[in-house]
């Protein structure tokens, strides 16, 4: 039945796209929630994660090494950007925004110089990475399911970390009221640095994880820079839970529209954002 198989493809694609969006936006909202810094270079970090993963995968063929390196680079870049670039501009939000914009443009140039032709994930013998599965007459990449599981796992880990640890409670406290957090004896500057490094690492890891499915070309950062805006606006700028549900909503609707009304594709994401801005400007989960 062609109708059903199309629907199944669209839904599987939608959920795996949702996880991609969540991996990009979760770090962004954690950083923004605490520090009020909207990192425009965040999606470029994500793309850089994909390039680095592919670069190392092509030379080592080892998935874990190729994943670990972008995460480590993400932590280091996060530490550097927060300590050296953002810190002198605390409280100056417009300047921080301009700074991260400059950083984005710089990184895009570096990407184009380093990998002018882009990088492509090779065909492998590994069933999980390259294999296909047949569901109701549709052939689906097994790795899409892996990506969905990883996305859910990342969400659960963030949720446990934020909800159950003392550090997570301190992060939520700093997000709610920075001055009171200081009065509670919390070292808020250290918290800023740690959360920026954590958020950057999440972005690099996300890029690395999706690279078996999408090729690393310059379209990757440009497309996702816009999506990295849309998800937090829809879900609520300070809520990783909001980012999760908004990613699901946008990911699934985006793919359904792309399969059935392809002329509306991409515009639909912006339409969702505008509708949410009109009815609930603080985001669907912004009140929490």
């Amino acid at each position: 039945m062609p109708g059903l198989s199309l629907l199944i493809s669209a839904l599987i694609d939608g959920v795996s796209r949702a996880m991609t969006l969540f991996l990009i936006s979760s770090g962004l909202v954690i950083i923004f929630g605490l520090m009020d810094v909207f990192n425009l270079a965040h999606a470029t970090f994500f793309a850089l994660g994909a390039y680095l993963f592919l670069q190392f995968y092509l030379s080592t063929s080892c998935f874990l090494i190729s994943l670990a390196i972008p995460i480590a680079v993400g932590i280091l870049i996060g530490l550097f950007v927060e300590r050296v670039l953002i810190r002198p501009l605390y409280g100056k939000h417009i300047m921080q925004l301009l700074l991260t914009m400059g950083l984005m443009l710089l990184l895009l140039q570096i990407i184009q110089i380093a990998w002018p032709a882009g990088l492509y994930f090779p065909e492998t013998e590994n069933r999980i990475l390259s294999g296909m599965l047949e569901i109701a007459g549709t052939r689906v990449r097994i790795y899409k399911f892996v990506l969905v599981c990883v996305g859910l796992l990342v969400y659960l880990v963030i949720d446990l970390f934020m909800g159950r640890t003392r550090f997570g409670a301190m992060l939520r406290a700093g997000t709610e009221n920075r001055e009171l957090a200081r009065a509670f004896g919390i070292n808020i500057e250290l918290l800023f640095t740690a959360s920026f490094a954590f958020g950057s690492a999440l972005a690099f890891m996300g890029g690395a994880l999706i690279s078996p499915l999408v090729h690393a070309t310059i379209e990757l950062p440009t497309t996702f820079t816009l999506m990295a805006f849309v998800v937090p606006v829809v879900g609520g700028m300070r809520s990783y839970k909001g980012a999760f549900y908004a990613s699901l909503l946008i990911g699934v609707i985006d793919r359904l529209v792309a399969y059935y009304f392809s002329w509306l594709s991409f515009a639909i994401d912006l339409i969702i954002m505008i509708v949410v801005l009109l009815i609930k400007p603080e985001g669907l989960f912004g009140g929490e």
Binding site: R166, A169, R172, A173, T175, E176, N177, L180, F184
Partner: peptide
Amino acid sequence: HEIINLGISFVAAERAIFGSLKVEENLRI
């Protein structure tokens, strides 16, 4: 945080606790 950690506690007049945290979490941090 350095001053507080030398042995001072400050109880603010308004908005003196974190509403989004549980009671026990406020005490824990």
